[in-house]
Amino acid sequence: MFNLFALLVVFGAIGVVVSKNVVHGAMSLLVSLLGVTGLFVLLDAYLLAFVLLLVYAGAVVALFLFIVMLLDTHGDQRPGVKHLPLIASVITGALVVVGAASFIMHARLPEPILANVPVVGDSLKHYAYQLFTTYLLPVQVIGFLLLIAMIGVIVLSRKHEEAAS
């Protein structure tokens, strides 16, 4: 099962990059996200899987599609690949391959003793308790983060009339 979902994730991600049509790209993103959801289910993290499905697959990808339709950006011919970026991409790609290979060769996680691992990811109640006790401060900070993000969007997108001074 893991391999199936992992393949979905990887091929979806590749699809996002290579597809010429933007709508196909968004659909590939959806496939990739479904794979990630499957991985979370395999880890018994049902809440995360559900939230990912709802927020990303449901809302974000739908938003992407909506914007694509709105902007009507299809059929833009991509500019030809120049030499320097090509060389840089080849080098970067080679580095990624080397990095992945060295991870496969050297990376060893200690074998977890499953009996000692508390299963906490499947309970909504547990998340709620954590969020409102241990992690209350980050939750509050994120509240402010969302506030300034909202204010920023308004300030940057609104037509500003001349300040009455």
Binding site: V141, I142, F144, L145, I148, A149, I151, G152, V155, L156
Partner: peptide, 8 residues
């Protein structure tokens, strides 16, 4: 939070 503030 710092970074997003700076984006704006």
């Amino acid at each position: 939070t710092v970074t997003i503030g700076f984006y704006i």
